[in-house]
Amino acid sequence: MQRGDAQDRALPRPLTPDHQHPIPKPSSVGVMTVHSARSSVTVPLGEVVPAAVEPTPMRVSEERYVLTPIPDPVFDIQHLSLYYGEKPALIDISFQIPRHQITAVIGPSGCGKSSFLRCLNRLNDLIDGSHIEGRVLLDGQDIYAPSMDVNELRRRVTLVFQKPNPFPKSIYDNVAFGPRIMGIRQRAVLDEIVERSLRQAALWDEVKDRLHASALQLSGGQQQRLCIARALAVDPEVLLMDEPCSALDPIATGKIEDLMVSLKENYTIVLVTHNMQQAGRVSDYTAFFYMGYLIEYQRTTDLFTHPRVRQTEDYITGRFG
C-alpha cells in the first residue's frame, strides 16, 4: 500500500557543483521535511559550501522517503541532529521505531549508524563536546528532558557495542554486572539470570563449565555473545545491537538471528548491520542512512524489493558504498 509507483519516485536531479558538499555546516542546515503517508521528501536548503573547499565524490541524494506513521511506535525521533563538536554526524533524522519489531539500520561505514544508536540511550552524553538537536520520544516521553533518569533509561534501552567489550572480570560477573548494580544480591536469583541470559545468547553450552574464568579468555565471537547476554540480563525493553554478528561464524550468526526473532515477542530490537541478507532475513523495517542523513525508511520487504530512492537502490545492489 505504501509502495510508490515508478513515476512517484523522483529521479535525482543532475548534481551541480553547488551540491557537491553533502553535509552543510550546522548553521547552514535548514531542512524542510514533507511527511505524508506515501512519501516524505527532505530538501536541504540554504547556503552550501563550495566544492573547492572540500572536494568529495560522495553526494547525498536529495530524495528522501520516510514511511510514516508507524503503528504503535516505541521511539518517535523528531528532527534529531547530532554534533561532535562542530561536526554534524546526524542531520535532521525523523522516523518512528515500532514496538516488538526488529528495525534494521543500514548504510555505508561512517554514515552515523552507531552514533544514532547511542542517541537512543543517551550514551553520547559521555562523549565530551557532543550535543543534539531535536527530540527523541520513548513511549511519548522526551528522553532528553531534564526530568529523565538517564541510568534508568539506559537500563530500559540497552546497547550491545560494535566492538566486543567484556569487562575484565569473570564470565559470571560480566553477566551478573547489570543485575547487581540494580541491587540484586541473592545468589540463586543471580545464578538463574546468568544461566537464562547465557542460554538466550547461545553461549551457555560453551561456558557453563568455566563461568568463573576470565571473560577475556573467550574468543571474539564468544565475547560478542557474552556482551549480548550481559545486555539481556538487565531485562531491557529495547535492545540496541550494533553489528552483533560481525565477529561470528555462520552458525553463531544463525543462533543470534534466531535469538533476535524469538526476542521480538517481548523486546524491541534496533539492529545495525552491514549484511543486507541479514537485514532482509530478520528485520521488519529498515532505515538506510547515508552521510548522516536518513535517506529511506520502509518495511524491509519493500525497501529491498522496491526501493523508493535511487541512492538506496544503488547501495543495496552494491553499486557504491
Binding site: 550514551l123 534508568e152 572480570k169 547489570g178 548494580i181
Partner: peptide, 27 residues
Amino acid sequence: IQPEIRHGARALGATQWQTVRHVILPA
C-alpha cells in the same frame, strides 16, 4: 582503559560511581 569498557558499564545503567568502583578501579 578503553572507553568502550567505561561506556559498556554505563550502557547497562551503571552510575558513574558504580562504573568507577566496579570496573575502572579494578582495571
